[in-house]
Design a protein around this nucleic acid. Structure first.
Lengths: 242, 242
DNA sequence: ATCATAATGTGATATTTTTCACAATCAATT
DNA sequence: AATTGATTGTGAAAAATATCACATTATGAT
């Protein structure tokens, strides 16, 4: 059963904000818990998809990797997020792999239980659909961002999304600290570029003082400059995230 | 009210195959009809999103266009398809524009009516979610295809999707006729490349006899060759479509 | 503090993709 | 059959991005 603190945490999390506390609780009442060590996998592509995962704490990335060792990072999830909707009801196999970035605890909800709740509480069904739609919009805006303004556009949009997801006010001048260590390799896998290209683009942004490094993390000094590069449309934060 | 013929058509259509005939009928019972001339718009990005559109006949593309005149074609919908789920319950504004490619008739279902059906028939809710999930997978696999194997990979994946959507057996040797005229400009807007690049890549494919032109349409002679370029994973057709 | 490993930085070069500037072809009208 | 506009084809040059091959700098464990 979920404690009040977790509910509070989820309410602050944009990805699941479509769920009312009551509805989140309904879902979690059926869940069983599971721990995944950093680097271990929650599921692999090709697995059967009949579960939903609620992250209690930790972080998980959803990826697609190729034979040649390339990796595409589609999403990064954190406490309060739910993983697994797109494949849930299809009966097909999963197309992506989920790997824990940190030690992670999840609550696992079975497809069957979910159907039960949906049939008992139609406002839950509505909340669930709202959440599915929001997540789909996240994916659609990502396609836009990755395709439309070259690699610099893709990178800047990703930095904005990281700011929305992990950002903290840095000092009074409005700078934002992206309070998570993200390697250049990770960034390159998020935008389908090489590490070297990312490195050079970030150097350019540093030269222009759009961003800065501190303790291996990125501080965004000039958000508007980033927004300009990717022609940012100022989507709501539950959509403009990693 | 929908005629039997339309129901038959929808059952053949992969995008809405998640709906049982009864559930499709439930939804269409609330719909009002609307005609859109070829080239006119069903909706614009920035509009409020509180409607769902069922295509009775004709074709509609969903696009995002930039100030510089670039256009990204995200989806092309046809008879039996439903448009609008991702934005539906969010209350936010639409992120994409829908334009009729041919004279099109749609049935318009209001958000409010949909909620009503969801609360009355939970199997409808399940079908609806199944459909939302499938559509989301379409988008996710598209990200993969567009990002992972360069422009040639993006183009070949698009040709495969077109084959699944508009393909007809061409003769006994297993060739597929993509039975719709798609300009190189359209193709370039689907994969985020220039018309010229698309032209050159198609020329290469013709040289290798992977494809051929006939009456301005494309015949795919060697589907496997296309699959190889984009490392095709043979996704089901309701996901591998345009 | 030292060592080992991971992460970052950078030049030189190759490859991919775009841009520009037309020519050639096709398809629908007059 | 001639004309017009849209579409397709192509070369040459520029720009964007990737590749390769290291040097440098952090980070964490001993």
């Amino acid at each position: 059963m979920n404690k009040p603190m977790e509910l509070t945490k989820q309410l602050e999390n944009s990805n699941t904000s479509s769920f009312s506390p009551a509805n989140l609780e309904r879902m979690l009442a059926y869940a069983t818990d599971r721990s995944i060590a950093a680097g271990s996998h929650l599921f692999w592509e090709g697995d059967i998809s009949d579960k939903l995962f609620y992250i209690k704490n930790g972080r998980v990335k959803l990826t697609k990797s190729t034979d040649e060792g390339k990796e595409l990072i589609l999403y990064m999830y954190q406490a309060g997020d739910i993983i697994g909707q797109a494949d849930l009801f299809s009966g097909t196999r999963l197309g992506f792999t989920a790997e824990a970035l940190e030690d992670t605890e999840v609550s696992v909800i079975d497809h069957k239980d979910l159907e039960l709740i949906i049939c008992q509480h139609c406002d839950f069904a509505i909340d669930f659909m709202k959440w599915m739609g929001t997540h789909h919009r996240l994916t659609q805006t990502k396609v836009r961002d990755l395709m439309l303004y070259g690699k610099p556009g893709a990178l800047c949009s990703t930095l904005i999304r990281l700011s929305n997801t992990y950002g903290e006010p840095h000092n009074e001048d409005g700078s934002i600290l992206i309070n998570k260590k993200i390697t250049h390799t990770d960034l390159s896998n998020m935008i389908g570029a090489t590490r070297e290209s990312v490195n050079r683009m970030l150097s350019d942004l540093r030269k222009k003082e759009t961003i800065e490094y501190e303790h291996g993390m990125i501080i965004v000094h000039d958000l508007e400059a980033l927004q300009e590069v990717c022609h940012c449309e100022l989507c709501p934060k539950e959509i403009c995230r990693i």
